Amino acid sequence: MSTVSRRSALRILAGSSVLAPAVVRAQDSFPSRPVTMIVPFPAGGPTDVTARVLADKLSGVIGHPVVVDNRAGASGNVAAQIAARATPDGYTLFFGTGGTHGANPALFKNPGYDPIKSFAPVAWATTSPNIVVVNPEFPARTLAELIALAKANPGKYNAAAPGHGSTPHMAGELFKVAAGINILHVSYRGSGPALNDVVAGHVPIMFDGVPSSLPLVQTGKLRALALTSLERLSTAPDIPTIAETIPGFEADGWFAVYAPAGTPEPVVTSLNLAVNRALPEAKARYAELGVVTVGGSPEKLAARVESEVRKWSDLVARTGLRGEN
């Protein structure tokens, strides 16, 4: 939407009784001050890394700082609740995940928000595979060897994941069902602490996001066994996919930008345009991290949320998984 058409839309809204005059004036100059982007996991993990790359480029697009605010807790539910209750003026955004807007509504009886009703979709930002990594001393050197070990020793091996209900955790649960194995998932408050324990050998296996694990694979501190995407990454062509062993397996991680429900449509439109302008500028950095930019309309993101909620609801119904507050 051009500047002229956006202002025209605002003038139409200003003449209606739907919006208070103060809100209309705020929209007309949007954005006029820094924007906060709430991130539901601690600094250093894949969610945080991915969010900060986008926040940096988005700051340049809108001409004001986009400040990352990490609010970890309850598998992302704490941050989602804070974001959902924020003033719907476009100055508080939420960097949601496949956990907060896919798995959590199925895992938690009352997560404190509704992934569809509590938020206004802005734009689907990125997608990236999850990755299965192991400590270099772990005996399995391939995914097939890991499956064989787990079948021979049911319940013996632990696998770390960054948060109960996170996309890596859910990818791990889906993998267990698909492979017919029993490994115990241990959830951590973010990727950082979990990776520390895997590197130290306290936990042998981890399901993680690519951005936080790939650098440790490249330096030899971890060994990568497989990716959860259907195809290999161009930036890491030597890492096979789970689908090469279990045909059709797919459980990627994805991130998106939301505003609180009730945010005026012209503001959502402005934010969507800004995110879609920022993503190409972040593409090269994301490629280094094994992340693919997506972009598109709010409607495209809304459809993704609906499909992910269905997917993970089916898995939860099948396995009896429950959330951990």
Rank of each mutant, 00 (worst) to 15 (best):
V78L: 15
D56H: 15
A251S: 14
A123W: 14
G290E: 02
L93T: 03
K57W: 00
S187V: 02
T47I: 14
R141V: 10
T100D: 01
P215D: 00
R33K: 15
P247L: 13
T219L: 08
T167C: 09
D252E: 12
F119S: 00
S313N: 13
G192A: 14
P266R: 09
P31I: 11
T47C: 14
G192H: 10
I239Q: 06
A140L: 13
M170D: 01
V78N: 04
A51K: 09
V177P: 02
P34S: 11
L230Q: 11
A261C: 03
V61W: 14
A179E: 01
F41N: 08
K221G: 02
Y258A: 00
G155I: 08
G96C: 07
A171N: 01
L271W: 12
G45P: 05
V292P: 01
V133G: 02
G323A: 12
G60H: 12
V66I: 15
A226M: 12
G96T: 10
G165D: 05
P260V: 05
F255P: 00
S187F: 08
E265G: 03
T36I: 10
E308C: 07
P115R: 09
R33F: 05
A22P: 00
I38P: 03
L289T: 06
I12W: 13
T235F: 13
S234M: 06
R52V: 01
A200W: 15
A55C: 15
T219D: 14
H169F: 15
S59I: 11
V66W: 11
S270F: 13
V294H: 01
A243W: 12
A26F: 05
S16M: 08
L10C: 08
V268L: 13
T167L: 10
T219G: 02
V49D: 00
V4K: 15
P264T: 02
N325M: 06
H164Q: 10
S16E: 09
T36N: 06
H202F: 14
L58W: 14
M37G: 01
P260H: 12
R285Q: 14
A259E: 02
V292G: 01
V61N: 09
E265P: 02
N77F: 06
G165T: 04
I12C: 06
R277S: 10
V23Y: 04
P240H: 10
S59R: 04
G44T: 06
V309I: 15
L13K: 01
W124M: 09
L10Q: 08
